[in-house]
């Protein structure tokens, strides 16, 4: 039997294509590991809590409730959104939280596994995938909640709602791609995580998360340029059965994201040994 041979040099002499192939192969081969890691973290998270899974419902409801309250009380004037505001706010915060979590996820998962990284050789890509699993699990509950609202508040069923998973995947893809690019430096400097958290709070206000794109003004062009906008707007359009206004931007975003995602995977693979060396647990 031919023995698997690994050669370690200063710099990987492999081409981008080979690195990507190795990365994808590791993702496939480590599917049990990524699932197991996600299962471990989810179990542990809920086992040490009395309300357990309820928290996954309470948190998004609370955020949405704040905006519904602000809207009803007239504190914040929102232009006509074309759908019941609770659904508008809830769908916006839902997809926004998926995007931001996806951005943070690779860095968080890798950082939490620092000790393991410095002791054991395992397919590191499993950390990213397990992060996505956890994210999907936590979002699943919110998604169910969203659909409950949709039927309760009279929007009803539209065929386009079947495309809903595509939007979720797009949100994960865009978020994870961004996350992969910040992870290497973010693991070296803690500043990065802080900057990202702060930056995303600002960006949320130029994204139609809780209010619609204004008719005119500089805010309008900012929001239209914002790459998160097409994801959120397309989601709402599909939910209500309207024709998607940002369709081409949305498709363009995905087309650009896929090669960037691959590049992010390669970057991640190359940088892990450097990070392990510099940030020993």
């Amino acid at each position: 039997m031919e023995l698997e041979t690994r050669v370690y040099h200063k710099q990987s002499k492999k081409s981008f294509f080979n690195l990507l192939r190795d990365s994808l192969k590791d993702i496939f081969n480590s599917r049990f590991l990524s699932r197991q890691l996600a299962e471990r973290d989810i179990k542990a998270q809920y086992r040490q809590s009395y309300f357990g899974l309820l928290w996954a419902l309470i948190t998004p409801l609370a955020t949405a409730a704040v905006w519904i309250f602000l809207n009803l009380s007239g504190t914040v004037q929102v232009t006509d959104t074309g759908m019941p505001y609770p659904i508008y706010a809830f769908s916006g915060t839902l997809i926004w939280s998926i995007i931001t979590e996806a951005i943070h996820s690779p860095m968080r998962s890798t950082s939490a596994a620092r000790r393991m990284l410095s002791k054991i050789n395992f397919p590191k890509e499993a950390l990213i995938i397990s992060g996505l699993y956890k994210l999907l699990f936590n979002s699943a509950i919110k998604i169910v909640l969203l659909f409950v609202f949709i039927y309760l508040l009279g929007i009803g069923f539209h065929l386009s709602q079947l495309l809903f998973p595509v939007i979720i995947l797009a949100a994960l893809l865009v978020g994870t791609t961004l996350g992969l690019f910040i992870t290497p430096i973010g693991l070296l400097y803690n500043d990065i995580a802080k900057i990202i958290t702060m930056g995303l709070t600002f960006i949320m206000y130029i994204t139609p998360v809780v209010y619609a794109i204004p008719e005119t003004g500089p805010m309008k062009s900012l929001m239209q340029l914002n790459p998160f906008t097409p994801i959120i707007v397309t989601l709402r359009d599909l939910l209500t059965g309207n024709s998607p206004q940002f369709m081409s931007y949305f498709i363009g975003l995905i087309v650009v994201s896929i090669p960037l995602f691959c590049l992010g995977l390669i970057l991640y693979r190359i940088s892990i040994p450097i990070i392990t060396e510099r940030s020993n647990a």
């Binding site: 050669v7 370690y8 200063k10 990284l117 054991i120 050789n121 040994p273 060396e277």
Partner: peptide, 18 residues
């Protein structure tokens, strides 16, 4: 294989257990 060498070369043949 946790960190890379700065110079030289390491060849490992077969399954590694640590």
């Amino acid at each position: 294989g946790l960190i890379n060498p700065d110079e030289g070369k390491v060849t490992m043949r077969g399954k590694v257990g640590a």
